[in-house]
Simulated assay, not measured.
Amino acid sequence: MADPVVPTPRFPYKSDRLKPLRAFCQTVRLGSVSRAAEALFVSQPAITLQLQALERELGVTLFERSGRRLAPSREGQLLYELAQPLVEGVDGLDALFRDKVSGLDSGELNIAANSSTILYLLPKIVENFRRQHPEVRLTLHNAVTADGTDLLRSDAVDLAIGSVLDVPADLSYAPVYRFEPLLITPPNHPLAKKPDLRLEDLSPYGLILPPKRLITYRLVDLVFQQNRVPYTVALEVGGWEVIKQYVAMGMGISIITSICLTDADRDRLTARSLAQWFPARSYGVVVRKGKYLSPQARDFIELIQPHLFERRDYDESGHSER
């Protein structure tokens, strides 16, 4: 025969555990049931019933009388240390929530971008964003594309700005700008004014390129290989400003995108289009699929391209699609 089921005692107050714990914490803090009742705007008998029910459930005495003041017992002191942070946390939830909601429009914004994007594409956008959102702490993380996607996946950044050739399945890429591929040489270079420039014409001259791990090097190698045109790399060096300086000094020629060419370069460099052989490079916004975009992140994207949110890349809730 099965053992009889012993019914578990049921106390009406257990439907709301917060009330007796709040009454208990106030009684400990004020040392009096009557003062706790006044502080909580309830009757003294109601506080007494809640404390008695709490003692019955826990099977301990929570208070000891010390003169006219109630003091917590050893068990009561332990319960107070556990319950006080919970009660204070719940009681302060409304104010904390309102503070956090108001902080959605401030807070931080972390963006990953490579050096050319930070140097040539973002300055005006960052200036406008800082003027509109002076309360937001904006951090630009200088990272190549592969490192930027790793930062996105770990939520170390909110979004990335740059050029992506192969978009991973877990990321969404919305291209915004396209920049023309250019050959740059010193003004007196034989290729500077050569008519009917062909890809083969570049072969005799050493190229100054960024490191092999970057997209530009891979693109250059791919185009020359596909067209079966030999080429030589005279120098690998990081930074487009350095590359342009070395080209201007006559150390070699280079292949860049028009994003990297400024008005200040026109006196020291000659630029010629290579659009016949090299694809235009797109630059845009990269986000992790399913990631919530904060208001400040959406505002930054809006400054990059006002019509970007009309695309299907972002839904109305601020989460990325596709």
Rank of each mutant, 00 (worst) to 15 (best):
R10I: 11
A83I: 08
D91L: 13
G103H: 13
Q84C: 15
F63Q: 00
L49W: 09
V6Y: 00
F97H: 06
I111G: 02
Q77G: 12
S32F: 01
D94L: 12
P12F: 09
A95C: 10
F97D: 03
T27V: 05
S106Y: 05
G92L: 10
V33T: 12
V33P: 00
E57R: 14
S43Y: 05
R35G: 09
A95P: 04
G59T: 04
S43Q: 04
L58V: 01
I111R: 11
A83S: 00
Q84H: 07
Y13V: 10
G76I: 12
Q50S: 15
R29G: 01
K19G: 14
S73H: 08
L109K: 11
F63A: 01
S32V: 08
A37Q: 01
V33I: 13
R35I: 06
N110D: 14
P20I: 14
S15Y: 11
S106M: 06
L70W: 09
S102I: 11
Q50R: 13
L21D: 06
P85V: 00
G76R: 01
A37W: 02
G31V: 05
L86R: 00
V60K: 00
L21F: 08
I47S: 03
R98K: 03
G103W: 11
I47W: 03
D91N: 10
L109C: 08
S34C: 10
A39I: 06
S34Q: 15
F41Y: 07
F11S: 02
T8G: 07
S102L: 12
L78F: 12
V60C: 02
L86W: 06
T48D: 05
S34F: 03
A95S: 14
D99L: 14
L49P: 06
K19N: 10
K100Y: 14
L79R: 04
S32K: 12
L78W: 15
A37I: 06
K19R: 14
S73F: 15
L82V: 09
S15F: 07
E88F: 04
L109W: 10
A71C: 03
L79M: 08
F63H: 01
E38W: 13
R74E: 15
S102W: 10
F41E: 15
Y13D: 11
Q50W: 12
C25D: 05
S32M: 06
G103M: 13
R17M: 11
L58R: 14
S43C: 10
L82G: 09
A95T: 14
L58F: 08
L70I: 02
L49H: 15
V28Q: 11
K14S: 03
L40T: 09
A37D: 09
P20G: 15
G103C: 11
L82H: 12
Q52L: 14
E57L: 13
R29N: 13
L96F: 00
P72T: 04
R56N: 12
A83M: 07
Y13G: 00
